[in-house]
Amino acid sequence: MYKSLNRAIIAIRKKREVENPFGFFMVDKLLKKEEFIGKIFDGAILMIGGFLGDGTPESLIDEIVKAGKKDLTVIANDTAFPGKGIGKLIRAGLVKKAIVSHIGTNPETQKQMIEGSMEVELVPQGTLAEKVRAGGFGLGGILTPTGLGTVVEDDKQRCEIDGKEYLIEPAIKADIALLKAKKADVLGNLTYNLTAQNFNPLMAFAAVTTIAEFEELVPKGGIAPNEVRTPHAVVDFLVRGDCK
């Protein structure tokens, strides 16, 4: 009996969530997909979460491909695989420049780079994570030993602290950050799932507008304070994802 009651409650909650999420709780941040695409413009600098597609907001990317928003600069860990995650933007020829740590899994990125239709800037993965973090945390950049004496150092400054040398890596920011969250509450607090975290909580801070695709929407208090990974203060909009 409890089981069927539970099922009924879940069904009602789902219906309410779609029509009017949680009744009297206003969800100002909730966007329909049509509304979401209005936030993306040609030539935008996007940060997109994900590691080889894991933790990438696939539904948001599908909308961008559908709308054909072009000349995009994408800051991300990688360009995933052909036709998957950020690979969909690459295949559609919408990316003008990619700032990533790795393109080895996507031959289409390599092809466009060699043909000259897309510019690729390669950044060591740990450096990229810290550049994004610095961008969002109000820092001008970071000092790292990674890349010293390699091609990564070209056109960059060095500095010495306590007798050790470091590269100065400037912070980076974006117009829009696109995240993939596991759970969002109506205020915009977010949680992520296992290896789908990666760059998402860092990028959340580093853009003028932060938009999170979520799998599950819960009311205020539905995420325990200890569980909140990204505080709502940095999340501007929420969009329900198609894929679970």
């Binding site: 740590s101 790795h102 393109i103 780079m113 060591p124 993965q125 740990g126 030993p145 890349g147």
Partner: peptide
Amino acid sequence: LIPGMGGAMDLVTG
């Protein structure tokens, strides 16, 4: 062959 350094530079450095 230009796959990118991924995490290799950080790993070898740290």
